[in-house]
Design a protein around this nucleic acid. Sequence first.
DNA 1: TTCTGTGAACGGATTCACAGCA
DNA 2: TGCTGTGAATCCGTTCACAGAA
Lengths: 213, 213
Amino acid sequence: MPIEIPEVVIERLPVYARALNDLLSRGREVVSSQELGTELGVTPAQIRKDLSYFGRFGKQGRGYNVRRLLEELRQILGLERQWSLALIGVGRLGRAILSYGGFYPQGFHIVEAFDSDPKAVGRRIGALVIKDVSVLEETLRQTHVDIGIVAVPAEHAQAVIDTLVATGVHAILNYAPIAARVPANVHIRHIDPVLALQSMTYYLKAHEFAAAK
Amino acid sequence: MPIEIPEVVIERLPVYARALNDLLSRGREVVSSQELGTELGVTPAQIRKDLSYFGRFGKQGRGYNVRRLLEELRQILGLERQWSLALIGVGRLGRAILSYGGFYPQGFHIVEAFDSDPKAVGRRIGALVIKDVSVLEETLRQTHVDIGIVAVPAEHAQAVIDTLVATGVHAILNYAPIAARVPANVHIRHIDPVLALQSMTYYLKAHEFAAAK
DNA sequence: TTCTGTGAACGGATTCACAGCA
DNA sequence: TGCTGTGAATCCGTTCACAGAA
Protein backbone atom coordinates (compact mmCIF):
# COMPACT_ATOMS: atom_id res chain seq x y z
CA MET A 1 0.00 0.00 0.00
CA PRO A 2 2.71 2.57 0.80
CA ILE A 3 3.95 2.00 -2.74
CA GLU A 4 1.67 4.67 -4.15
CA ILE A 5 2.93 7.44 -1.94
CA PRO A 6 5.12 9.70 -4.07
CA GLU A 7 8.78 9.60 -3.17
CA VAL A 8 8.91 13.41 -2.94
CA VAL A 9 6.40 13.21 -0.13
CA ILE A 10 8.59 10.75 1.78
CA GLU A 11 11.54 13.04 1.31
CA ARG A 12 9.67 15.96 2.82
CA LEU A 13 8.60 14.14 5.96
CA PRO A 14 12.02 14.32 7.64
CA VAL A 15 12.03 18.05 6.96
CA TYR A 16 8.70 18.38 8.71
CA ALA A 17 9.92 16.22 11.56
CA ARG A 18 12.96 18.40 12.06
CA ALA A 19 10.87 21.57 12.11
CA LEU A 20 8.46 20.04 14.61
CA ASN A 21 11.39 19.07 16.76
CA ASP A 22 12.52 22.68 16.78
CA LEU A 23 9.03 23.91 17.60
CA LEU A 24 8.77 21.43 20.41
CA SER A 25 12.07 22.50 21.92
CA ARG A 26 10.84 26.07 21.77
CA GLY A 27 7.84 25.01 23.84
CA ARG A 28 5.31 25.23 21.05
CA GLU A 29 2.34 22.91 21.52
CA VAL A 30 0.17 23.50 18.48
CA VAL A 31 1.01 24.55 14.93
CA SER A 32 -1.06 25.16 11.82
CA SER A 33 -0.09 24.06 8.33
CA GLN A 34 0.09 27.77 7.57
CA GLU A 35 2.77 28.47 10.18
CA LEU A 36 4.74 25.34 9.45
CA GLY A 37 4.63 26.18 5.77
CA THR A 38 5.94 29.69 6.32
CA GLU A 39 8.75 28.30 8.45
CA LEU A 40 9.79 25.85 5.77
CA GLY A 41 8.97 27.70 2.60
CA VAL A 42 6.30 25.22 1.58
CA THR A 43 2.61 25.83 0.90
CA PRO A 44 0.18 24.90 3.66
CA ALA A 45 -1.84 22.84 1.19
CA GLN A 46 1.19 20.74 0.44
CA ILE A 47 1.78 19.96 4.08
CA ARG A 48 -1.85 19.00 4.62
CA LYS A 49 -1.89 16.86 1.49
CA ASP A 50 1.37 15.15 2.41
CA LEU A 51 0.14 14.31 5.88
CA SER A 52 -3.21 13.13 4.58
CA TYR A 53 -1.47 10.18 2.92
CA PHE A 54 -0.85 8.77 6.38
CA GLY A 55 -3.80 9.76 8.48
CA ARG A 56 -5.71 12.61 10.04
CA PHE A 57 -3.44 14.17 12.55
CA GLY A 58 -4.89 17.64 12.84
CA LYS A 59 -7.82 19.25 14.56
CA GLN A 60 -10.01 21.46 12.45
CA GLY A 61 -9.97 25.05 13.59
CA ARG A 62 -6.90 24.37 15.76
CA GLY A 63 -4.02 22.87 13.85
CA TYR A 64 -1.66 20.05 14.74
CA ASN A 65 -0.44 19.01 18.15
CA VAL A 66 3.31 19.36 17.73
CA ARG A 67 4.35 16.47 19.96
CA ARG A 68 1.75 14.13 18.58
CA LEU A 69 2.53 14.89 14.94
CA LEU A 70 6.25 14.55 15.53
CA GLU A 71 5.74 11.16 17.08
CA GLU A 72 3.56 10.05 14.19
CA LEU A 73 6.18 11.13 11.67
CA ARG A 74 8.98 9.45 13.58
CA GLN A 75 6.90 6.29 13.61
CA ILE A 76 6.15 6.47 9.90
CA LEU A 77 9.77 7.10 8.99
CA GLY A 78 11.19 4.50 11.35
CA LEU A 79 13.13 7.06 13.34
CA GLU A 80 12.24 5.45 16.66
CA ARG A 81 14.60 2.60 16.07
CA GLN A 82 18.34 2.47 15.72
CA TRP A 83 19.91 1.68 12.38
CA SER A 84 23.29 0.09 11.82
CA LEU A 85 25.54 1.28 9.04
CA ALA A 86 28.73 0.11 7.38
CA LEU A 87 31.21 2.62 6.02
CA ILE A 88 33.28 1.65 3.04
CA GLY A 89 36.28 3.89 2.42
CA VAL A 90 38.16 5.39 5.33
CA GLY A 91 40.23 7.96 3.49
CA ARG A 92 39.95 11.63 4.21
CA LEU A 93 36.26 11.72 3.43
CA GLY A 94 35.51 8.50 5.29
CA ARG A 95 37.27 9.71 8.41
CA ALA A 96 35.32 12.96 8.26
CA ILE A 97 32.12 10.91 8.11
CA LEU A 98 33.23 8.81 11.08
CA SER A 99 34.00 11.87 13.15
CA TYR A 100 30.76 13.62 12.18
CA GLY A 101 28.66 13.85 15.29
CA GLY A 102 25.30 14.17 13.56
CA PHE A 103 24.51 10.54 12.83
CA TYR A 104 24.63 8.91 16.22
CA PRO A 105 22.10 11.11 18.05
CA GLN A 106 19.63 10.43 15.23
CA GLY A 107 19.93 6.69 15.72
CA PHE A 108 22.40 5.98 12.92
CA HIS A 109 25.27 3.89 14.24
CA ILE A 110 28.31 3.10 12.11
CA VAL A 111 29.21 -0.41 13.24
CA GLU A 112 31.66 -1.51 10.55
CA ALA A 113 34.34 0.25 8.52
CA PHE A 114 36.31 -1.04 5.55
CA ASP A 115 39.21 0.13 3.46
CA SER A 116 41.48 -1.32 0.81
CA ASP A 117 44.66 0.41 1.95
CA PRO A 118 46.83 -2.06 3.91
CA LYS A 119 48.10 0.84 6.01
CA ALA A 120 44.57 1.64 7.14
CA VAL A 121 43.37 -1.92 7.69
CA GLY A 122 43.61 -2.99 11.31
CA ARG A 123 43.76 0.55 12.55
CA ARG A 124 41.34 1.45 15.28
CA ILE A 125 39.11 4.53 15.14
CA GLY A 126 37.06 4.95 18.28
CA ALA A 127 35.38 1.61 18.86
CA LEU A 128 35.85 0.50 15.25
CA VAL A 129 38.63 -1.55 13.75
CA ILE A 130 39.02 -1.00 10.02
CA LYS A 131 38.65 -4.21 8.07
CA ASP A 132 39.95 -5.09 4.65
CA VAL A 133 37.41 -4.47 1.92
CA SER A 134 38.07 -8.01 0.69
CA VAL A 135 36.11 -9.30 3.68
CA LEU A 136 33.24 -6.86 3.12
CA GLU A 137 30.98 -9.44 1.58
CA GLU A 138 31.50 -12.20 4.14
CA THR A 139 31.36 -9.77 7.05
CA LEU A 140 28.02 -8.35 5.95
CA ARG A 141 26.65 -11.82 5.39
CA GLN A 142 27.34 -12.52 9.04
CA THR A 143 26.72 -9.14 10.63
CA HIS A 144 23.59 -7.49 9.34
CA VAL A 145 23.75 -3.80 8.57
CA ASP A 146 20.82 -1.72 7.36
CA ILE A 147 22.59 0.92 5.32
CA GLY A 148 25.91 1.22 3.50
CA ILE A 149 27.86 4.45 3.25
CA VAL A 150 30.12 4.57 0.23
CA ALA A 151 33.13 6.88 0.47
CA VAL A 152 35.58 5.24 -1.89
CA PRO A 153 37.09 6.79 -5.04
CA ALA A 154 34.74 7.02 -8.03
CA GLU A 155 36.40 4.18 -9.92
CA HIS A 156 35.67 1.65 -7.17
CA ALA A 157 32.27 2.89 -6.09
CA GLN A 158 30.08 0.85 -8.41
CA ALA A 159 31.85 -2.38 -7.46
CA VAL A 160 31.41 -1.63 -3.76
CA ILE A 161 27.77 -0.80 -4.31
CA ASP A 162 27.26 -4.06 -6.21
CA THR A 163 28.79 -5.96 -3.31
CA LEU A 164 26.56 -4.20 -0.80
CA VAL A 165 23.52 -5.03 -2.88
CA ALA A 166 24.65 -8.64 -3.21
CA THR A 167 24.78 -9.02 0.58
CA GLY A 168 21.24 -7.74 0.93
CA VAL A 169 21.77 -4.09 1.82
CA HIS A 170 18.73 -2.13 0.63
CA ALA A 171 19.80 1.43 1.33
CA ILE A 172 22.97 3.23 0.31
CA LEU A 173 24.30 6.68 1.02
CA ASN A 174 26.78 7.39 -1.73
CA TYR A 175 29.45 10.09 -1.48
CA ALA A 176 31.29 9.00 -4.63
CA PRO A 177 30.83 11.20 -7.70
CA ILE A 178 29.14 8.63 -9.91
CA ALA A 179 25.64 7.92 -11.15
CA ALA A 180 25.42 4.51 -9.54
CA ARG A 181 23.04 1.89 -10.85
CA VAL A 182 21.09 -0.15 -8.31
CA PRO A 183 18.13 -2.54 -8.61
CA ALA A 184 14.67 -1.03 -8.17
CA ASN A 185 14.28 -2.48 -4.68
CA VAL A 186 17.42 -0.74 -3.41
CA HIS A 187 17.35 2.88 -2.32
CA ILE A 188 20.23 5.20 -2.89
CA ARG A 189 20.91 8.84 -2.09
CA HIS A 190 23.79 10.86 -3.40
CA ILE A 191 25.80 13.43 -1.51
CA ASP A 192 27.52 15.42 -4.20
CA PRO A 193 28.55 18.98 -3.44
CA VAL A 194 30.27 19.42 -6.80
CA LEU A 195 27.07 18.66 -8.70
CA ALA A 196 25.25 21.09 -6.45
CA LEU A 197 27.75 23.83 -7.26
CA GLN A 198 27.76 23.05 -10.96
CA SER A 199 24.04 23.59 -11.29
CA MET A 200 24.15 26.88 -9.42
CA THR A 201 26.82 28.32 -11.69
CA TYR A 202 24.34 28.15 -14.53
CA TYR A 203 22.23 30.75 -12.77
CA LEU A 204 25.20 32.83 -11.68
CA LYS A 205 26.30 33.02 -15.27
CA ALA A 206 22.84 34.02 -16.44
CA HIS A 207 22.56 36.57 -13.65
CA GLU A 208 25.89 38.21 -14.46
CA PHE A 209 24.88 38.42 -18.05
CA ALA A 210 21.65 40.16 -17.06
CA ALA A 211 23.45 42.47 -14.61
CA ALA A 212 25.97 43.51 -17.27
CA LYS A 213 23.25 44.81 -19.54
CA MET B 1 15.10 33.59 -21.97
CA PRO B 2 16.79 30.89 -19.86
CA ILE B 3 14.15 31.57 -17.22
CA GLU B 4 11.72 29.11 -18.73
CA ILE B 5 14.09 26.15 -18.62
CA PRO B 6 12.97 23.86 -15.80
CA GLU B 7 15.33 23.72 -12.86
CA VAL B 8 15.37 19.91 -12.94
CA VAL B 9 16.86 20.12 -16.39
CA ILE B 10 19.65 22.40 -15.19
CA GLU B 11 20.35 19.98 -12.37
CA ARG B 12 20.77 17.09 -14.77
CA LEU B 13 23.23 18.85 -17.06
CA PRO B 14 26.22 18.45 -14.71
CA VAL B 15 25.41 14.74 -14.50
CA TYR B 16 25.53 14.49 -18.27
CA ALA B 17 28.74 16.50 -18.34
CA ARG B 18 30.39 14.17 -15.87
CA ALA B 19 29.37 11.09 -17.85
CA LEU B 20 30.66 12.64 -21.06
CA ASN B 21 33.91 13.39 -19.33
CA ASP B 22 34.22 9.73 -18.40
CA LEU B 23 33.40 8.62 -21.93
CA LEU B 24 35.97 11.02 -23.32
CA SER B 25 38.69 9.75 -21.02
CA ARG B 26 37.83 6.24 -22.17
CA GLY B 27 38.47 7.37 -25.71
CA ARG B 28 34.87 7.37 -26.79
CA GLU B 29 34.12 9.81 -29.62
CA VAL B 30 30.43 9.41 -30.29
CA VAL B 31 27.52 8.45 -28.03
CA SER B 32 23.79 8.06 -28.59
CA SER B 33 21.12 9.22 -26.17
CA GLN B 34 20.31 5.54 -25.77
CA GLU B 35 23.77 4.63 -24.50
CA LEU B 36 24.13 7.69 -22.33
CA GLY B 37 20.73 6.98 -20.87
CA THR B 38 21.60 3.41 -20.01
CA GLU B 39 24.80 4.59 -18.36
CA LEU B 40 22.96 7.11 -16.21
CA GLY B 41 19.65 5.41 -15.63
CA VAL B 42 17.71 8.04 -17.53
CA THR B 43 15.48 7.63 -20.57
CA PRO B 44 16.98 8.55 -23.94
CA ALA B 45 14.00 10.79 -24.64
CA GLN B 46 14.73 12.79 -21.53
CA ILE B 47 18.31 13.40 -22.55
CA ARG B 48 17.29 14.50 -26.03
CA LYS B 49 14.57 16.76 -24.69
CA ASP B 50 16.88 18.29 -22.09
CA LEU B 51 19.53 19.05 -24.67
CA SER B 52 16.99 20.44 -27.11
CA TYR B 53 16.39 23.37 -24.76
CA PHE B 54 19.85 24.62 -25.65
CA GLY B 55 20.43 23.66 -29.24
CA ARG B 56 20.85 20.86 -31.71
CA PHE B 57 24.03 19.10 -30.77
CA GLY B 58 23.47 15.67 -32.29
CA LYS B 59 23.71 14.14 -35.71
CA GLN B 60 20.74 12.09 -36.84
CA GLY B 61 21.63 8.48 -37.35
CA ARG B 62 24.95 8.94 -35.51
CA GLY B 63 24.48 10.38 -32.06
CA TYR B 64 26.44 13.07 -30.24
CA ASN B 65 30.08 13.93 -30.59
CA VAL B 66 31.30 13.43 -27.03
CA ARG B 67 33.91 16.18 -26.97
CA ARG B 68 31.68 18.69 -28.68
CA LEU B 69 28.68 18.03 -26.42
CA LEU B 70 30.84 18.16 -23.31
CA GLU B 71 32.20 21.53 -24.35
CA GLU B 72 28.71 22.84 -25.05
CA LEU B 73 27.50 21.75 -21.63
CA ARG B 74 30.51 23.23 -19.88
CA GLN B 75 29.84 26.46 -21.69
CA ILE B 76 26.15 26.47 -20.77
CA LEU B 77 26.85 25.71 -17.11
CA GLY B 78 29.73 28.15 -16.79
CA LEU B 79 32.20 25.42 -15.96
CA GLU B 80 34.90 26.93 -18.15
CA ARG B 81 35.51 29.68 -15.67
CA GLN B 82 36.82 29.66 -12.16
CA TRP B 83 34.53 30.49 -9.27
CA SER B 84 35.56 31.92 -5.94
CA LEU B 85 33.96 30.74 -2.73
CA ALA B 86 33.91 31.81 0.90
CA LEU B 87 33.63 29.21 3.65
CA ILE B 88 31.88 30.19 6.84
CA GLY B 89 32.50 27.82 9.73
CA VAL B 90 35.86 26.13 10.13
CA GLY B 91 34.98 23.53 12.70
CA ARG B 92 35.32 19.86 12.02
CA LEU B 93 33.01 19.96 9.04
CA GLY B 94 34.53 23.16 7.66
CA ARG B 95 38.04 21.76 7.86
CA ALA B 96 36.90 18.62 6.05
CA ILE B 97 35.48 20.83 3.31
CA LEU B 98 38.74 22.77 3.09
CA SER B 99 40.77 19.61 2.79
CA TYR B 100 38.41 18.06 0.25
CA GLY B 101 40.29 17.83 -3.00
CA GLY B 102 37.28 17.72 -5.28
CA PHE B 103 36.46 21.42 -5.58
CA TYR B 104 39.66 22.93 -6.89
CA PRO B 105 40.09 20.77 -10.03
CA GLN B 106 36.52 21.68 -10.99
CA GLY B 107 37.28 25.38 -10.84
CA PHE B 108 35.87 26.07 -7.39
CA HIS B 109 38.39 27.97 -5.30
CA ILE B 110 37.83 28.69 -1.63
CA VAL B 111 39.40 32.10 -1.19
CA GLU B 112 38.10 33.16 2.21
CA ALA B 113 37.35 31.34 5.45
CA PHE B 114 35.59 32.63 8.55
CA ASP B 115 34.90 31.39 12.04
CA SER B 116 33.57 32.82 15.28
CA ASP B 117 35.88 30.88 17.60
CA PRO B 118 38.71 33.19 18.78
CA LYS B 119 41.00 30.17 18.90
CA ALA B 120 40.45 29.49 15.22
CA VAL B 121 40.61 33.09 14.01
CA GLY B 122 44.03 34.04 12.69
CA ARG B 123 45.04 30.46 12.17
CA ARG B 124 46.41 29.61 8.76
CA ILE B 125 45.16 26.64 6.76
CA GLY B 126 47.07 26.21 3.53
CA ALA B 127 47.04 29.60 1.85
CA LEU B 128 44.05 30.81 3.89
CA VAL B 129 44.00 32.77 7.11
CA ILE B 130 40.79 32.31 9.05
CA LYS B 131 39.03 35.62 9.65
CA ASP B 132 36.55 36.53 12.33
CA VAL B 133 32.97 36.13 11.22
CA SER B 134 32.34 39.67 12.47
CA VAL B 135 34.24 40.96 9.43
CA LEU B 136 32.38 38.68 7.03
CA GLU B 137 30.15 41.44 5.74
CA GLU B 138 32.82 44.07 5.16
CA THR B 139 35.26 41.54 3.71
CA LEU B 140 32.75 40.33 1.14
CA ARG B 141 31.83 43.89 0.25
CA GLN B 142 35.47 44.42 -0.69
CA THR B 143 36.45 41.01 -2.03
CA HIS B 144 33.85 39.57 -4.34
CA VAL B 145 33.02 35.91 -3.99
CA ASP B 146 30.58 34.03 -6.16
CA ILE B 147 29.37 31.37 -3.76
CA GLY B 148 29.14 30.96 0.01
CA ILE B 149 29.60 27.65 1.78
CA VAL B 150 27.83 27.51 5.12
CA ALA B 151 29.25 25.05 7.65
CA VAL B 152 28.25 26.65 10.93
CA PRO B 153 25.99 25.13 13.61
CA ALA B 154 22.28 25.11 12.78
CA GLU B 155 21.44 27.92 15.18
CA HIS B 156 23.72 30.40 13.40
CA ALA B 157 23.16 29.30 9.85
CA GLN B 158 20.22 31.53 8.95
CA ALA B 159 22.02 34.63 10.21
CA VAL B 160 25.12 33.78 8.20
CA ILE B 161 23.01 33.16 5.12
CA ASP B 162 21.25 36.49 5.59
CA THR B 163 24.62 38.22 5.77
CA LEU B 164 25.81 36.49 2.63
CA VAL B 165 22.68 37.54 0.81
CA ALA B 166 23.07 41.10 2.07
CA THR B 167 26.55 41.34 0.57
CA GLY B 168 25.27 40.23 -2.81
CA VAL B 169 26.11 36.53 -2.83
CA HIS B 170 23.64 34.78 -5.12
CA ALA B 171 24.56 31.14 -4.57
CA ILE B 172 24.89 29.21 -1.33
CA LEU B 173 25.94 25.68 -0.54
CA ASN B 174 24.48 24.92 2.86
CA TYR B 175 25.73 22.11 5.08
CA ALA B 176 23.74 23.20 8.14
CA PRO B 177 20.67 21.13 9.00
CA ILE B 178 18.09 23.84 8.51
CA ALA B 179 15.50 24.76 5.90
CA ALA B 180 17.02 28.15 5.13
CA ARG B 181 14.95 30.91 3.61
CA VAL B 182 16.48 32.97 0.84
CA PRO B 183 15.07 35.49 -1.64
CA ALA B 184 13.90 34.16 -5.00
CA ASN B 185 16.94 35.50 -6.81
CA VAL B 186 19.36 33.57 -4.59
CA HIS B 187 20.12 29.93 -5.25
CA ILE B 188 20.73 27.49 -2.46
CA ARG B 189 21.56 23.79 -2.32
CA HIS B 190 21.52 21.68 0.80
CA ILE B 191 23.96 18.94 1.70
CA ASP B 192 22.20 16.97 4.37
CA PRO B 193 23.15 13.32 4.85
CA VAL B 194 20.85 12.89 7.85
CA LEU B 195 17.78 13.87 5.82
CA ALA B 196 18.91 11.47 3.11
CA LEU B 197 19.13 8.64 5.64
CA GLN B 198 15.83 9.54 7.26
CA SER B 199 13.90 9.19 4.03
CA MET B 200 15.49 5.84 3.21
CA THR B 201 14.52 4.33 6.53
CA TYR B 202 10.89 4.71 5.53
CA TYR B 203 11.46 2.19 2.78
CA LEU B 204 13.60 -0.09 4.92
CA LYS B 205 10.82 -0.23 7.44
CA ALA B 206 8.23 -0.98 4.78
CA HIS B 207 10.49 -3.61 3.26
CA GLU B 208 11.10 -5.42 6.54
CA PHE B 209 7.40 -5.46 7.15
CA ALA B 210 6.82 -7.05 3.74
CA ALA B 211 9.66 -9.54 4.23
CA ALA B 212 8.28 -10.62 7.62
CA LYS B 213 5.01 -11.68 6.06
C1' DT C 1 -14.83 31.51 13.00
C1' DT C 2 -10.69 28.86 12.06
C1' DC C 3 -8.21 25.51 10.05
C1' DT C 4 -8.16 20.58 8.48
C1' DG C 5 -8.81 17.01 4.89
C1' DT C 6 -9.58 16.12 0.20
C1' DG C 7 -11.72 15.69 -4.38
C1' DA C 8 -11.10 18.42 -8.60
C1' DA C 9 -8.53 21.46 -11.49
C1' DC C 10 -4.29 22.76 -12.92
C1' DG C 11 0.37 22.96 -14.48
C1' DG C 12 4.58 21.16 -15.49
C1' DA C 13 7.70 17.45 -16.46
C1' DT C 14 8.26 12.96 -18.74
C1' DT C 15 7.42 9.89 -22.29
C1' DC C 16 5.64 8.77 -26.73
C1' DA C 17 5.86 8.50 -31.41
C1' DC C 18 7.14 9.98 -35.64
C1' DA C 19 8.93 13.16 -39.27
C1' DG C 20 13.25 14.07 -41.13
C1' DC C 21 18.07 13.96 -41.87
C1' DA C 22 22.60 11.34 -42.48
C1' DT D 1 18.57 1.99 -41.38
C1' DG D 2 19.71 4.57 -37.14
C1' DC D 3 19.15 8.09 -34.27
C1' DT D 4 17.96 13.04 -33.46
C1' DG D 5 14.65 16.76 -32.44
C1' DT D 6 10.12 17.79 -31.12
C1' DG D 7 5.02 18.46 -31.01
C1' DA D 8 1.40 15.80 -28.73
C1' DA D 9 -0.15 12.83 -25.24
C1' DT D 10 0.37 11.29 -20.84
C1' DC D 11 1.46 11.13 -16.20
C1' DC D 12 2.04 12.91 -11.76
C1' DG D 13 2.63 16.24 -8.23
C1' DT D 14 0.89 20.78 -6.61
C1' DT D 15 -2.52 24.02 -5.72
C1' DC D 16 -7.27 25.30 -5.39
C1' DA D 17 -11.37 25.64 -3.13
C1' DC D 18 -14.69 24.16 -0.21
C1' DA D 19 -17.33 20.98 2.91
C1' DG D 20 -17.14 19.89 7.52
C1' DA D 21 -15.49 19.46 12.26
C1' DA D 22 -14.03 21.98 16.58
